[in-house]
């Protein structure tokens, strides 16, 4: 027994000395991995309560991604049952476990601003005023969720793009949408069409018509084919009218709607036997 105790003590001493040697090395590596976004902090107390013991253990045991896949399945199930509280809670857990997964932020927000908001709006058991209030609340929750995603992924273009879409479609706040699209386009891997969306939104933002006109005109003057799409031309023509731009300075293009009508007319004439398509 004494021999065992002696050995045990010596083994612990050996491991302690080893621990003292590795501690600074480990601390440095830990810092490097955390700075590179490769190590996440352990789940906080509130998250641990929400996840349950087994999921917490799995998350701590290096199986965060598996727990997050399970939570995604759980959220999908809750979505089919229109259990919005569960969907919201599950996506909160998923994004806390994997804060750099941009798609999860976007999908969680989408469930809130699109699905939950539409669902409460269609809920006829609620009074109309309450339905509208709840719809707005879910849209706002979706926006907050996206903003959290942006804070966690400052270099990602997609959450900004999604935010622009929500401001445009759900809040009709075109000024905020323009700013969101501008931010999205400034980031790496942004879709090329976003450069035009900034102009479209500015054109609908009260008091920014001149800015919108200058912006879209600059795009138009670049001359590339994708800068002179029908929507750019329509927006410019509307702004020219609104700002009363002198005729000489206006773009020479024919309005796309007139072009479309002319093309339709030509097609009609070409049909053999004088057949007309209504």
């Amino acid at each position: 027994m004494a021999l065992f105790a002696k050995k045990f003590f010596l083994v612990v001493m050996l491991l302690l000395i080893g621990g003292l040697i590795r501690a600074p090395w480990e601390k440095k590596l830990n810092g490097e991995l955390s700075a590179a976004g490769l190590l996440s902090n352990p789940p906080g107390e509130s998250l641990r309560e929400q996840m349950g013991q087994s999921a917490t253990l799995a998350a701590l045991g290096g199986l965060r991604s598996l727990v997050s896949i399970y939570m995604t399945l759980h959220a999908h199930d809750a979505w089919q049952m229109t259990d919005w509280e569960t969907v919201e809670r599950d996506y909160h857990i998923i994004t806390t476990l994997q804060p750099r997964d941009v798609d999860s932020w976007i999908k969680g927000a989408w469930h809130l601003w699109a699905n939950a908001s539409a669902n409460v709006q269609l809920n006829e058991s609620l009074p109309p005023a309450l339905r509208e209030k709840m719809r707005q609340e879910y849209v706002d929750k979706g926006i907050v969720f996206l903003q959290q995603g942006i804070r966690n992924n400052p270099q990602a273009a997609k959450p900004w793009e999604e935010l622009g879409f929500v401001y445009r479609e759900k809040k009709h706040d075109y000024c905020a949408a323009a700013e969101a699209y501008r931010q999205a386009y400034a980031r790496p891997h942004a879709s090329a069409y976003l450069v035009r969306f900034v102009g479209y939104m500015l054109a609908q933002c009260p008091g920014h018509e001149r800015e919108a006109y200058d912006y879209l005109r600059a795009l138009y003057d670049e001359g590339a084919i994708h800068r002179r799409l029908p929507s750019v031309i329509v927006s410019l023509k509307q702004l020219e009218e609104k700002l009363d731009i002198p005729l000489i300075q206006r773009i020479p293009d024919v309005h796309p709607d007139i072009l479309r009508q002319e093309r339709a007319k030509k097609r009609e004439q070409k049909l053999p036997g004088g057949i007309r398509i209504q």
Partner: peptide, 19 residues
């Protein structure tokens, strides 16, 4: 000091997410 820090090897989660 005695027990190894296993968390330090848990980078595969982040790698699978594209880090």
């Amino acid at each position: 000091l005695v027990i190894p820090d296993f968390q330090i090897f848990n980078i595969s989660d982040s790698i699978s997410s594209g880090q």
